[in-house]
């Protein structure tokens, strides 16, 4: 019986103090993997095509058809995200205008604590062309280490289906060009960005 008591205490100790409380310790580190983020497949046909997704259910970021995915973690309510929106759009436009990058680097945004309506407001207000996803209940935000916003992740998708985080940084871009250069270098993509 005493053994059982010890076992019960040990088990609870492991649960309480172990890493299994469903909460990530911090943002995904460079060189690491993304947490399992489940997003809804966009209803918009153009967005679905852009991401190279099929079906109408859910998907995970490594399923996106790209060599590298840039993920912006933002909120409609965040002043810095609002201020940064034109620069983020510029990064997207530069990628789309460059034949050596278009189709290889894709961008998405996750609106933490934002409803579908609120993400829609942000998209319309700033004319965001890449797909934005709501995270109304902060579920994804918790998995992403409850980062402040805006936060940018670069995720390299390998041909064998694996992936690595190649960029993980808080705050506005120093410059759009510098951000893209870093992403391109870390992605090991060939071809120079058009200046």
């Amino acid at each position: 019986m005493r053994r059982m008591l010890c076992f019960a205490l040990l088990a609870w100790g492991m649960i309480l103090f172990g890493p299994s409380d469903g909460r990530s310790a911090g943002p995904p580190p460079v060189g690491g993997k993304l947490p399992e983020l489940t997003l809804g497949v966009p209803k918009d046909a153009a967005e679905k095509t852009y991401l190279g997704l099929s079906g109408s259910d859910t998907f995970k970021i490594p399923m996106i058809r790209a060599k590298t995915v840039v993920v912006e973690i933002f909120s409609m309510y965040c002043p810095y995200c609002q201020k940064e929106a034109p620069n983020v759009n510029k990064a997207y436009e530069k990628i789309e205008a460059d034949p050596s990058l278009k189709g290889k680097i894709k961008m998405i945004g996750i609106g933490v604590g934002n409803s579908t309506f609120e993400v829609g407001v942000f998209k319309k207000k700033y004319g965001v062309s890449f797909p934005l996803f709501p995270d109304g209940d902060f579920a994804l935000h918790k998995l992403l280490g409850e980062v402040r916003t805006p936060y940018f992740l670069g995720v390299k998708l390998n041909p064998d289906g694996s992936h690595q985080v190649i960029h993980s940084r808080l705050g506005a871009f120093e410059s759009v060009e510098k951000f893209l250069d870093e992403i391109i270098k870390a992605s090991e993509l060939k071809g120079e960005m058009q200046k």
Binding site: A8, W12, L16, G113, T149
Partner: peptide, 28 residues
């Protein structure tokens, strides 16, 4: 009773973080 007591305390501690405040904060 000690096992039940510890399990109860454990459960309370385990549930506490899940009812925590949820918010995103701007870097501003």
């Amino acid at each position: 009773s000690p096992i039940i007591f510890f399990c109860l305390i454990g459960t309370v501690l385990l549930v506490m973080p899940t009812v925590r405040n949820s918010f995103a904060l701007s870097d501003a």
